Simulated assay, not measured.
Amino acid sequence: MRIDFLGLQAFIAIAERGSFLRAAAHLNLSQTALSHRMKKLEDDLGVRLLIRSTRVVTLTPDGEALLPKAKQALAGLAAEVEALREKALGQETRVALGCLPTIATSHLPHVLLDFEAAHPGVAVKIYDNSASEIAGLVRSGAAAFGIGIVTAAMWDLEMTPLRKEPFLLLCPQSHAFADKRAVSWGELEGVPLIRISPQAGNRALIDDALGSRREALNWRYEVQHVQTAVSMVQAGIGLTIVPKFAMERSAIPGLRLVTLRNPSITRTLVVFTKRGVPLSPVARDLLELVRARIAGRRSAPVAAP
């Protein structure tokens, strides 16, 4: 089947801006030309993607399902084209990586400071997404590499282990658990807990390790990101479970990390790269700085070009 890239571009622009007028201005098209592209795409697919009223544009269920996949595919294509253009010019001006939000907020800023010193002027795009999304970004070429956790076997990606870390209990210093060396999962029964949404890789690891025992716990709240759960613990709303490496270098006043036992649950951070596709020199330098940070060692200075 022939892919209508111009139609997909029009669809994404309209969906992101909620308006044919604003999308047409963004693409430097007339509204008539934009409408023609959109109609052609829908006719080719045989489904409606947009519902257009006098004031607003909304997505149909088919449109909502297509949008993230179309954005990821076109982002990957754009990255590949840009890489070829830079290769022809003999220079790299940008690099993109995927990274778990917990690592992006706690460790990536330090990496980027070192990277900027070695490669001044090189733009860095960071996809701080979930583990499954990071794998998709690397697969599509939108990201040169990704830092995540293994959620499933992926034949087209290389996965290199970086570090193994345990999950810990995060609680206020005033809580009864704060002075304990370790807490068992059984002791958490009845305690208000905050967990992360099922879309997060951490949630799947914890659920699988606990099995049916997770149903005995009082999962009072559910959030989308670890940072939100940490803020709720600070407010005294409940306790949460966090990966050690994400928190160990960013001490939060008033909070305490406590070891969890019976069972001890761990995750392994890995590097995702596309199988058979070598990294560019700039991407290799950035990855080496990330490896050094995660390994807890000082990185050797990367020579500036």
Rank of each mutant, 00 (worst) to 15 (best):
R2C: 06
A10R: 00
I12Q: 10
A23K: 05
H26S: 13
L27F: 10
K40M: 13
L41Y: 07
D62M: 09
A65L: 13
K69S: 11
G76H: 02
A88L: 10
E92C: 06
A96Q: 02
P120W: 09
P120M: 08
V124M: 01
D128E: 12
S130L: 06
E133Y: 07
I134L: 13
A135W: 04
A144T: 02
T151I: 12
A152H: 14
M154T: 06
M154P: 00
D156S: 14
E158R: 11
L168N: 00
L168K: 03
F177C: 03
A178Y: 03
R181A: 14
S184C: 08
W185C: 08
W185K: 07
E187P: 03
G190C: 11
V191L: 08
S197A: 15
S197Q: 09
A200F: 02
I206T: 13
A209M: 05
A229S: 13
G238L: 06
P243F: 02
P243K: 02
F245K: 03
L257N: 01
V258N: 01
L269P: 07
L279N: 04
L279H: 06
V282A: 12
R284S: 15
R284G: 10
L287K: 05
V290K: 03
V290Y: 01
A292E: 01
R293C: 10
